[in-house]
Write a protein that binds this DNA or RNA. Structure first.
Lengths: 121, 121
DNA sequence: CTTTTTGCAAAACCTTTGCACAACC
DNA sequence: GGTTGTGCAAAGGTTTTGCAAAAAG
């Protein structure tokens, strides 16, 4: 992968925030530094960075991809009302344990990705 | 909610399968029984059923919503290669425990939904 | 100089919605 | 009969892509 000023900027933006921005949020942040950057470039680089494992994607119920610069193993809490995404670092696994943080859990979606027996018997 | 033949059909289709179909898969199934049903009706009812808690939505990395007729608490395993979605019923929580099923876990996304402290102090 | 990346704009894609008509109760 | 649900088609919003020009090495 060749260096590009745009990609470095996008990486810095994601790594430098603790919220979990969408592509267009990153786009607007990037434009403050690089006014000519295009949305296509943002999308292209986000996909690239996610494929490389530099960042993580979060498929939420708002139908927009969110990106997370923290690739360490952790889970997330999303408020039904304000949509805020809160990192849940370990140890914090069961809904009961999360409740102890003052968050009331009403639902959970837990998806594991990997290789199935038929594809990699 | 008033009765409709189309909604009953859609509900039956989802409840009757153990895969996790997308809206258009449900649409094609439904057309075999009700050839005039429209895609809009399928989407409308899926949203309605999900809002009512009759079915569950699964936000996966393929950018299409998947639906699950089983609303009991369980998680999912998705194959990176073939995209198959496998139900992980309890007890099967940690990646290590899933590995014991012959599935090689390479990633996980665990999102809890609920009410945050600021919205419901 | 060759290859990768960008900007721009158009296209693709899934999902939602407006409206007139039909179905439900 | 009044209200809710449907079919159709168009619109909406996010993400992807083709292409010529620019940047990187």
């Amino acid at each position: 992968m060749r260096y590009s000023r745009q990609r470095e900027l996008i990486t810095d933006i994601i790594k430098g925030r603790c919220d979990h921005p969408t592509a267009d949020m990153i786009y607007y942040s990037a434009r403050e530094v690089e006014p000519n950057i295009s949305l296509g470039t943002v999308y292209r680089n986000l996909k690239l960075l996610a494929d490389e494992g530099v960042i993580i994607t979060l498929e939420t119920q708002d139908k927009k991809l969110h990106y997370d610069g923290d690739t360490s193993r952790h889970s997330h809490f999303i408020c039904n009302k304000c949509g805020k995404i809160i990192d849940l670092f370990r140890p914090a696994k069961t809904p009961d344990e999360i409740s102890d943080l003052g968050l009331k859990v009403t639902g959970e979606r837990c998806i594991y990705y990997g290789d199935c027996t038929e594809c990699f018997g």
